[in-house]
Nucleic acid binder design. Structure first.
Length: 751
DNA sequence: ATTGCCACATCC
DNA sequence: GATGTGGCAATC
């Protein structure tokens, strides 16, 4: 804590005060203020005070004017340290967010709010005299006051006993406790208890099972990095059920052994009790969990346990990457391809990139794990930047499910208009007869609708961008949301001239109705956003499916991942094509992943599993590769496409999104900006770049705001970062009263 | 965001 | 001249 001057970020969202303000530290506060301190300062005209966070300390200030003094500092000490400050700077630079939003993402849970999360305190008693005296008193009280005597015994045995426990265990009343206090034998105390999201008592500890040769090899490689403080990145590519989790657990064990800590990121959806239990069984109270289902109190308390060093392994969703651990030995990202690792609000960070940054700072091993790695990560592995480790076998001699494809064009030809084809109907029936369960997955992603031909499967795509054109009902037009290319919706299929050309879309409710009429004797349970709006019902539905042996579980994305029911032997993918043709260059990757994951839900028990993929385009390469469960072919194909069209990992894509409640002026401003960006890029950027748009977004209006987007494809580097930071300041200085700008680095999806 | 300041309009 | 309003710049 050095320096008489502090750089403070004001806790306000206004963009034009998003910079450091300097204050002098009064003598009374010297030594109490450090980086991360939460302070109140005078700000602006009048005697208004605001709160803010200290981001820098120095001995001199080059501000020419009289500095004001810091008024007060929060008693509870700094809210983040220098490492987290560097993370904030990383977030600001890479994701073009304000200082304050960067700071807020690393703050302890609850501390950004007005009403602070209160500590949970319990009242109890402690011994107030040395043991000798207590024993003497015990004898004196033996006959006269048996209740007090019992309490005294409790206090001798335990350092602290909660009042409620005393009452429960001894049957005494408050008078007895008070009597002991009056005698000076006991003293009232209040301690803080942590609200623990996990019931550790109920989870028996378990040791590592014997590892397979492949698992052991992976553990050895990663552990070597952990023990030698080497920041290596590993891509753990393992088929579903190949025991990746066991590999993490062993690496973490090693890290703990040598006094280091670990972070494990899991997608929110797979942060199931099953998963958490596995970690708790291995590491007990050394783990802390962080995810959105926790109450504010639980979150705050888990954070404290991490900060204090009691919890040394953090298992959590995306934001757990900001856990304030010291001396991190290994960071694991499970299912690293999952899109939920990308934040949707500012700062729109990708947990993988933040993890990479932190791993470098700690000299930690960085492990990315997936059965279907992101194309970006696999490319890094192929380039030799990541070390590729493959797990090709399942520890239990269980076979992968067999996958078959069912051609829905045939169904249409045969007059079956149902979204459940005859082969799938047969399989569902067969499963019922064998007393086994079925999961049906309805692939329905994104907001946009594409147009396809029911007769030949042809999908109308953009000439320039290799993404599907999006259907706009009002205009009866088709538009590309990358470059703006627009055509009128054709009346007949350009490929086969059939008039069965229509926009796509079927909901789970409709499918549910159909299932009821096709199989009146089968029980169906539906799981999607509508049925799971209540927080706990997600789990309740799955429990019901399992316990009551419901015949069919029908759902969207939610049923694709992480479920593990041994009696499920059949998985049906209702419209595999759907996710192939959203207006996103990652559509192929998404589809391959979804089909692979959902097929992996079949045959997790003893019995052989099977999956049936319904599609209008069985010859599509992604569908074929998913059927073969051939990731490598998929990757080779996809990386070639990305190379040809210059998509990540060959370049970065920056989105400049402009929104305004009034249409007037938005487009002209967007065009003006696009021209300026082009000029500046030509002047100041050293390398090839491409500028697309401005174009309308697939959802033209959100929250009453119209949207225009400019895309810039270039390789992100310091010069590009600088250009976009300048673009942001330029827009702020423009003080355009209506138009908002959001710059995003490699956004996911194109809404 | 919030404030004070300045120019200018409005009132009687 | 007194009072009111909108744009605008500055906030350590």
């Amino acid at each position: 804590m050095e320096g008489k001057f502090a750089g403070v970020i004001i806790n306000r969202l206004a963009l034009n005060i998003d910079r450091m303000f300097h204050y002098s530290i009064p003598d009374g506060l010297l030594g109490k203020i450090d980086i991360g301190s939460h302070v109140t300062v005078p700000f602006g005209n009048g005697n208004k005070t605001v709160d803010g966070f200290v981001l820098s300390l120095s001995n001199h200030s080059d501000f020419d004017g009289t500095l004001k003094e810091i008024l007060s500092v929060s008693e509870s000490g700094p809210l983040f340290d220098r490492e987290m400050l560097s993370v904030c700077q990383f977030l600001k630079q890479k994701y073009f967010c304000s200082y304050i939003s960067a700071v807020k993402t690393v703050l302890p849970p609850g501390s950004g709010r007005k009403n602070k999360v209160s500590d949970k305190l319990i009242r109890g008693s402690v011994l107030n005299v040395p043991y000798d005296e207590a024993f003497d008193a015990l004898e004196k009280l033996r006959d006269k006051a048996p209740k007090q005597c019992k309490i005294l015994e409790l206090l001798i045995q335990n350092d602290f006993v909660a009042d409620s426990d005393i009452l429960f265990l001894t049957g005494a009343g408050y008078q007895a406790i008070r009597a002991l206090k009056d005698k000076g034998l006991a003293r009232q105390e209040t301690v803080e208890v942590f609200r623990l999201p996990i019931d550790y008592e109920s989870i028996p500890r378990s040791a590592s099972p014997v590892l397979t040769e492949e698992q052991q090899y992976a553990v050895d490689r990663i552990c070597a990095s952990v023990t030698e403080n080497q920041n290596n990145t590993f891509l753990l590519h393992g088929v579903t059920g190949s025991g990746k989790t066991e590999v993490f657990l062993n690496c973490i064990e090693k890290a703990l052994e040598i006094g280091k800590t670990a972070i494990v990121l899991v997608p929110e959806i797979s942060l199931t009790p099953q998963m958490v239990t596995r970690f708790a069984a291995r590491f007990g109270k050394k783990i802390a969990v962080l995810h959105s289902a926790l109450s504010m109190g639980e979150r705050a308390d888990e954070y404290k346990r991490i900060k204090s060093g009691e919890a040394r392994v953090v298992v959590g969703a995306r934001s757990a990457i900001f856990a304030p651990l010291k001396n991190i030995g290994v960071i694991v990202i499970d299912e690293e391809h999952e899109t939920s690792y990308k934040a949707e609000n500012a700062p729109t960070y990708h947990a993988r990139e933040v993890a990479d940054f932190r791993a470098k700072q700690h000299g930690a091993a960085f492990v990315l794990a997936s059965a279907t790695p992101s194309v970006e990560s696999f490319y890094q592995a192929k380039q030799g930047n990541y070390q590729l480790i493959s797990l090709t076998r399942r520890p239990t001699a269980q076979n992968l499910p067999t996958v078959a494809v069912s051609d829905m064009r045939e169904e249409i030809k045969n007059g079956n208009r149902s979204c459940i084809g005859l082969s799938l109907q047969r399989e569902i029936r067969k499963n019922k007869e064998q007393g086994e369960q079925t999961i049906l997955f309805l692939n329905r992603r994104g907001f946009s609708t594409f147009v396809s031909c029911r007769s030949c499967g042809f999908v109308i795509k953009c000439k320039n961008c290799d993404v599907s054109l999006t259907y706009h009902k009002a205009k009866n037009s088709l538009t590309c949301h990358y470059c703006g290319y627009t055509i009128k919706k054709p009346e007949v299929c350009p490929n086969c001239a059939s008039s069965f050309i229509k926009e796509f879309g079927a909901g789970t409710q409709k499918v549910e109705e159909e299932l009821h009429s096709l199989f009146p004797d089968l029980s169906v349970i539906r799981m999607d956003v509508d049925t799971t709006s209540v927080k706990s019902s997600h789990r309740a539905i799955l429990e019901k499916f399992d316990k009551e042996k419901i015949d069919i579980l029908l759902g969207t994305q939610m049923v694709a991942k992480g479920l593990d029911f041994p009696n499920v032997t059949l998985v049906g993918v209702l419209a595999a094509d759907q996710s192939l043709f959203v207006d996103d260059f990652r559509a192929g990757e998404r589809t391959f992943d979804l089909i692979t994951q959902v097929c992996g839900r079949a045959g997790r028990g003893e019995k052989q599993g099977r999956a049936l993929i319904q599609t209008y385009m069985p010859e599509n390469s992604v569908i074929c590769q998913a059927q073969e469960q051939d990731y490598l072919s998929f990757y080779e194909n996809e990386i070639e496409l990305r190379r040809q069209l210059n998509y990540p990992p060959f370049c970065d894509i920056i989105s400049v999104l402009l929104t305004s409640p009034v249409l007037n002026g938005l487009l002209s401003y967007a065009k003006k900006l696009a021209r300026s960006i082009h000029i500046v890029m030509q002047k100041d950027y050293d390398g090839a770049f491409e500028l697309l748009g401005p174009s309308e977004t697939s959802v033209t209006k959100i929250n009453g705001r119209f949207r225009q987007r400019i895309w810039i494809k270039c390789k992100m580097n310091r010069k590009a970062e600088d250009i976009f930071a300048r673009l942001r300041s330029y827009h702020i200085n423009e003080k355009n009263p209506h138009i908002n700008m959001v710059i995003e680095n490699n956004p996911f999806g194109a809404i």
